[in-house]
Write a protein that binds this DNA or RNA. Structure first.
Lengths: 219, 219
DNA sequence: CCGCATCCGGGGCGATACTG
DNA sequence: CAGTATCGCCCCGGATGCGG
């Protein structure tokens, strides 16, 4: 994209991340860590293949990502965030919090739905509230499938699928799962609206409230 | 812009604010409050007049801004943020913090420079650290001109010009002013590099450190 | 099949001109 | 001052091709 040519931090940031798809590519890499081209394409329904290739190049030259050839079993290129790219988590957090109230109660007809998009929100917001040695695993099951979120005080990890044992599982519409995680709905309210919660509901409630107080209860 | 058609809070937020110029228009309105068309155009060097007009329309239909005809002395339309639009301050804060480290020490040849862009950063970040009844006025003077920032615990106000009495004045390159405000440079370091500070330098130092601890020292 | 590169139509963007 | 109108151009999006 053409530069704004303004000596302003916001304009300069947008010179780099303002291009279409860039922040969503960061979202995918922040969610699953190092990913292959086809993984990214799968997580970005609607992107044209040439655009993905082009964005990856400019994002690399801008210092947001790096690519390397994965060792033996994979053998194909793998893309991952640099520290600089990972630092965009705050931007994605802010956008997520801002966008949440506008989410319709369900996806519209031609909306793609993938559970990691809700899981990323969980990872970004909840791990801040954990006690120094606390580790919690979360299961999320929505229309699009199921994922597993492992939270620790320093970060989070998201994996596709949900075969493993987790501390709490949230199953139901994305809107309800997101609403609970954001603290817009209480656990009780969400249950009444049809969210299914298995495991430590008290743990979940504590997690949400402590995350909210930890970041200053904005949003 | 075309929708991403993804049932994801980030994608949905970008459907609204991902269009070129939108977040910079929010920046201007967040900086000076209700503004006229020509004010916006002046604060957005490089924007085409048809694009500004079109963006204002879609931003209004998206609920980010409202326009009304100003009373007697002005008589012309005035645009202002809705609560929903003002809630984008977190997004701009995050972008600002992320963009700051990449700012070159000075503007390049064809970069526009305006002091309110640094002032907005001051307003967004510093007012959070104030004590309940504390009010501080800040003067900022850079190559592009001078502005006055009035901080109170609940928000901030920025005015063009600097004729009034202020508590502290920072004069020098934007990079140094921003560096001090962000806590990347100490007051002493910035002074050594050429930043001129008049008034309560201790007050300024306290302001910066308390703002950083208040928001959790990220960035 | 995976990882791109190339081609092509449509629309957003940017500059200028023009009007009430 | 506050926009509207017009017109290239380039970016985006969709399809296709092609080597490993």
């Amino acid at each position: 994209m053409k530069s704004y040519n303004q000596y302003c931090t916001v304009a300069r940031a947008l010179d780099v991340v303002g291009d279409r798809w860039v922040l969503l590519i960061v979202r995918e890499l922040l969610t699953f860590g190092p990913s292959r081209y086809s993984d990214l394409k799968r997580g970005l329904p609607g992107i044209a293949t040439n655009l993905l290739a082009e964005r990856l190049k400019t994002m690399e030259s801008d210092g947001l990502i790096e690519h390397r050839v994965a060792p033996a079993p994979v053998g194909s290129p793998v893309y991952e965030l640099t520290d600089r790219g990972r630092a965009l988590d705050d931007v994605l957090s802010a956008l997520t919090r801002w966008g949440l109230p506008t989410m319709p109660s369900g996806p519209s007809a031609n909306d793609a739905v993938q559970p990691q998009w809700t899981a990323l929100f969980a990872g970004l917001t909840l791990h801040e509230g954990l006690a120094p040695d606390q580790r919690i695993t979360l299961g999320i099951r929505t229309d699009g499938g199921a994922v597993r979120v492992a939270l620790d005080p320093d970060g989070f990890a998201i994996e596709r699928g949900l075969d493993d044992e987790v501390d709490v599982t949230l199953a139901g519409p994305d809107q309800l799962v997101g609403g609970v995680l954001a603290g817009l709905l209480t656990v009780r309210e969400a249950k009444d609206l049809g969210l299914e919660i298995n495991g430590g509901t008290a743990l979940l409630a504590d997690l949400v409230t402590s995350a909210r107080t930890k970041v200053g209860d904005r949003g």
